[in-house]
């Protein structure tokens, strides 16, 4: 066992998988020099420039070429340097990667992982801060993972690499070095599509993912200490497919649910969670299904006070918990 940050765990996952299976390659901008977040540090030395491949600055071609390589016996990991820069590849992801298997009646498949650092809170401004999970969770044929902890990141990245489908693997930038966690020395995976109860509770269910998992756990601790409220925090970990059963079972137990996501409110992934609970757990609800999210502005100004004003944080979450508990 060793203590690792999330970015180290991600690097270890790629390193171990590339050691295990020489069909796996990493391709993207600056990956050879270790990447802007150092997620691919050391991979070039170990695997050479063909398997840790620097590409031109052309996201559509990175993903498109990765799709092609995946059709011919390679298992590519395509890195988008920032999620906010991945939009030129949107067409390749939704029109090609996500539909190839379906449109060919199951005769072609695209075993591909697209990694992208996402999320705000690092003074990234409007173009290094975006949450993009809702775009891709909307698209059948893709799997979408949003990781927040070192253990989950490593286990889920290994699952993504071994999955025969295209997987969007979103790594919250602020979680990269937020904390360290004990990581087993031996190989392990975390299943795609399984949520984890990160904190048990009985008064309320809090559904979240990504960086908001950390903020929500802090808020849950605060309201436990200050108000005696017992909040169950569920980290979805995967938003497509998402673990409806785990969420519904918890809501049935607690009767109240708060959904917390960093993306802006309208059409965010939490809206889907809310709709599902409203339809399938209506009889168990003892209060309105409530969301905490960023307001509908084009996300994360560069200026710190403005950025902080917009983003959900432990205080805002704690306040929403208290309001809902009092309902």
């Amino acid at each position: 066992m060793a203590e690792k940050t999330m970015v180290e765990a991600i690097r270890d996952a790629m390193f171990e998988e590339m050691k295990r299976d020489d069909r796996i390659i990493l391709m993207g901008e600056d990956v050879g020099s270790g990447g802007v977040f150092r997620a691919s540090e050391g991979l070039l030395d170990e695997f050479g420039p063909e398997r840790c491949m620097d590409t031109p600055l052309a996201e559509s071609c990175i993903v498109g070429a990765a799709i092609g390589a995946s059709l011919n016996g390679i298992l590519p990991i395509a890195e988008m340097q920032f999620a906010s820069f991945s939009h030129p590849a949107f067409d390749q992801i939704i029109s090609e990667a996500a539909r190839m298997h379906y449109r060919s009646n199951g005769t072609w498949s695209v075993p591909l992982v697209i990694r992208a650092p996402y999320g705000a809170g690092i003074h990234g401004g409007p173009y290094h801060s975006q949450s993009i999970e809702a775009f891709y969770a909307h698209v059948p044929g893709l799997k979408v993972i949003c990781v927040a902890t070192p253990y989950d990141a490593k286990g889920l990245l290994k699952s993504a690499i071994r999955d025969p489908n295209p997987v969007i693997f979103l790594e919250h930038k602020k979680a990269y070095r937020l904390s360290r966690q004990e990581i087993p020395d031996e190989d392990y995976t975390v299943p795609i599509g399984k949520a984890e109860i990160k904190r048990e509770g009985s008064d309320m269910t809090l559904v979240t993912y990504g960086l908001m998992t950390h903020h929500s756990l802090k808020a849950a601790e605060t309201v436990q200490d200050e108000d005696g409220l017992s909040v169950e925090v569920i980290d979805l970990r995967t938003v497509s497919p998402w673990d409806r059963e785990a969420v519904l079972a918890s809501v049935e137990k607690t009767g109240k649910v708060l959904i917390v996501y960093e993306d802006n409110l309208t059409g965010g992934f939490g809206a889907e969670v809310a709709a599902t609970i409203a339809q399938d757990a209506f009889d168990h609800l003892d209060g309105p299904v409530t969301r905490v999210a960023s307001p509908d502005v084009p996300i994360a100004p560069f200026a710190g006070p403005l950025e902080e004003y917009l983003l959900p944080n432990p205080e805002k979450i704690a306040s929403a918990i208290r309001d809902l508990a009092a309902y």
Binding site: G64, A65, I67, G68, I74
Partner: peptide
């Protein structure tokens, strides 16, 4: 067209 390039890349790598 990027798919063709990726397929050819795979042929070369393999």
């Amino acid at each position: 067209i990027p798919h063709a390039v990726g397929i050819a890349l795979a042929s070369k790598l393999r």
